[in-house]
């Protein structure tokens, strides 16, 4: 089983990398860009058959280590 974890800065927390990339896209003529946010994707391979159990475990991983919930939100997708 594979867990795809996406970690992004929370809405309202300024994302300097997203802002810089947005500016660069503007300079390149991509004027229709409204917002750019940069996060990271963490792919966790799990030795598990139980989807619910896996999701609970990955949630705990996020809360403990993978995300800093003071500034970041995360999403989990189990495949």
């Amino acid at each position: 089983m594979t867990a795809i974890v996406n970690v992004f800065l929370k809405k309202g927390v300024l994302d300097p990398q997203g802002k810089a990339s947005h500016h660069a896209l503007d300079s390149l003529g991509f004027s229709e860009v409204k917002d750019v946010r940069i996060g990271k994707q963490i792919i966790v391979e799990l030795d598990s058959e139980d989807k619910e159990k896996a999701e609970a475990e990955v949630k705990e991983m996020c809360e403990t280590l993978l995300a800093n919930t003071v500034i970041e939100d995360y999403t989990i997708e189990i495949r």
Binding site: L9, V13, L14, P16, Q17, A20, N68, V70, I71
Partner: peptide
């Protein structure tokens, strides 16, 4: 609190 990437990167 937390420490993020510098605003100017």
């Amino acid at each position: 609190g937390a420490l993020k990437r510098n605003n100017n990167l």
